[in-house]
Design a protein around this nucleic acid. Structure first.
Lengths: 150, 150
DNA sequence: ATCCCTGCAAATCGTTTGCAAGAGC
DNA sequence: GCTCTTGCAAACGATTTGCAGGGAT
């Protein structure tokens, strides 16, 4: 069993929940194939396997994975979400291309510091943040509007 | 007619659209009463007036207001949006309280600069950005969890 | 005449939920 | 037995859309 899958199993057990084959398969799939993915991406991937797992279970498991801290949920426009798993690597933010939907990750320690500063100036106990920079990626700039916006 | 309403009227006319009483009333309401508001907030406010305006028209007009640059649309969790109008004051970002939903505005020129730097490092043509810091505001920290999260 | 605008109701779409059946302890 | 988990289908909720009637030019 993959290390990350084991971690999730431990999380499940610590919370007195049950470790099911569905949860194992979903978690495997999350850590096997994807980096950024939607719940539906995942559902489609899973539906190619022999064991059938419902959308509801996919959503419910992603919820747990998020609570466990192994997966983070990023909200996009129009109420859509994408997920990404965490390998213990640093928090990062995203550049999002409005043409092709590509996401580029970055991390900027200075911005993080400024955020902390602003929070404390406002007596605000920061629990998290979301920074998204929208624009057009280098590839799409070259291609000059061949792709439709997502 | 309010200055902002007039600006929107000019925008409408510049685009060969028609200036209707609905558009005037909605725009007035936007600039009269609200700072942060949802489409539904606005609809409810409007429904207290004598002239009845449908939700569809509210949404369609908010769309136009956003395109005109007089109103900006901010996405929250769960596919919800809030709007805020612009008085020509500087772009700002938000601290969002997870207890009471309060939003505190801030502007940090240094963060803006870093964003530009990161974009250009990635050959990314930035068109906009969204920075939200989540946490607990000072009031709610005092009240210690009396309010339910929104 | 030809657009544009509106209201209505239905559709959309990702996500959530109620419920009954099944599985694990 | 009691709880947890699942699949199904229906519900959700903010937003969008198709359509027909009415207005402005």
């Amino acid at each position: 069993m993959k290390n990350e899958v084991r971690k999730f199993q431990q999380f499940i057990q610590k919370h007195n929940l049950l470790w099911s084959s569905e949860r194992e398969i979903i978690t495997e799939q999350v850590f096997d194939n994807h980096f950024h993915f939607t719940a539906d991406d995942l559902f489609i991937q899973l539906s190619k396997r022999d064991k059938k797992i419902s959308r509801a279970t996919v959503y419910r498991t992603l919820d747990l994975l998020e609570k466990s801290g192994l997966v983070s949920k990023i909200q996009l426009q129009h109420g859509k979400h994408i997920y990404e798993h965490i390998f213990g690597h640093k928090h990062h933010d995203h550049l999002i291309c409005q043409k092709c939907g590509k996401m580029i990750e970055f991390h900027c320690e200075d911005i993080e510091e400024w955020q902390k500063k602003i929070s404390s100036e406002n007596n605000f106990k920061m629990t998290g943040h979301s920074l998204k920079i929208y624009g057009i990626c280098a590839d799409c700039m070259k291609k000059k509007s061949k792709n439709k916006p997502k």
